[in-house]
Simulated scan of single mutants.
Amino acid sequence: MSSPALGEFLRTRRARIQPAAVGLSEYGRRRMVGLRREEVAQLAGMSVDYYTRLERGRDEDFPDSVLDSVARALRLDAAERDHFYTLVRPADPDYNYCPTVRPGTRLLLDSIATPAFVLGRHMEVLAWNAMGDKIFDFAADPEGNLARFTVLHPDAGVFYPDWEPVAAETAAYLRRQVARRPRDRRLTSLIDDLIAGNPVFHRIWSIQSATRNSHGHKLIHHPVVGRIEFGYETLDLPDDQDQVLVVYTVDPNSAASEAIDALRARELVGAH
């Protein structure tokens, strides 16, 4: 069964394409920005009725060839295409979510010298290593949620000096999850809270970004050592489809590496 979010996603993708950009002549009085449904149907080589049933989220088994044609017509990139397919074919709503971190994953975390942690479906922090705790203070809130902190905590804008891109990554992560599990009430409740609690995040959410930020850079202001610019890698965990491993990286001999060394030295001093 298709997600109610499918129609919203397709409408935003229609709105960003002008007819002239795809070789169509503009005709009649246009009361909307972007492509009409009939124009998408024309580009995708299908009837208007058939495309409309797709956009309205009708419970039908749309073949790959149809989805491929619509993706090409709307010029979806790879991340958007994956998101589109997930919206059309969400996962089994009866899937039993059990956010348990495997012992092997915990051993892997402990072997990593830089900050690392595991996130669950709702961006809850399931496990972390020592340096992850030094940076994020996870132990102070062992049931903490990184999305709630990023969007709703009053100090988030200080901790993340470039807050808005971090909030956009948060929105994209949650959008992928809700596309996969549209009937997850805990997930939709979380998103409702974030949207209601922060008007800037509400605007970011409405953009409907499906970008997957699996790697990049993140600037953090730590209360002890000041600003640290990390790289990061986000890795899907095998056999744990609702969990990702996030590893922060630093270049050797960089200011970030010196900051990590300083935090590690404080930890060693405190142990004696």
Rank of each mutant, 00 (worst) to 15 (best):
V70M: 12
A71S: 11
R72G: 12
A78P: 11
A78L: 11
A79R: 07
E80G: 05
R81H: 07
D82K: 04
F84E: 04
Y85H: 05
T86S: 13
T86C: 12
L87H: 00
L87W: 03
V88A: 15
V88W: 09
V88C: 14
R89F: 04
R89K: 10
R89W: 02
P90Q: 06
A91N: 04
A91Y: 00
P93R: 01
P93T: 00
P93K: 01
C98D: 08
P99C: 02
P99A: 03
T100Y: 06
T105M: 01
R106E: 06
L107Y: 04
D110N: 07
T114R: 06
V118S: 04
L119T: 08
R121E: 10
M123I: 06
E124D: 15
E124V: 06
L126M: 05
A127W: 13
N129A: 11
N129S: 14
N129C: 13
A130D: 15
A130Y: 13
I135S: 12
I135P: 09
I135K: 10
I135Y: 11
F136I: 11
D137P: 05
D137S: 13
D137A: 11
A140L: 14
A140C: 09
A140D: 13
P142K: 10
E143D: 15
A147K: 09
R148G: 10
R148T: 08
F149T: 07
F149P: 08
F149Q: 08
T150N: 12
L152H: 06
L152Q: 10
D155P: 10
A156N: 13
A156I: 14
G157Y: 13
F159C: 14
P161I: 11
P161C: 12
D162N: 05
D162Q: 07
W163F: 01
W163G: 06
W163D: 02
E164W: 09
P165Y: 09
V166K: 12
A167Q: 00
A167E: 00
T170C: 15
T170A: 12
A171K: 00
A172C: 04
A172V: 00
A172G: 01
Y173G: 05
Y173A: 01
L174P: 07
R175H: 01
R176A: 03
Q177K: 05
Q177E: 04
V178K: 03
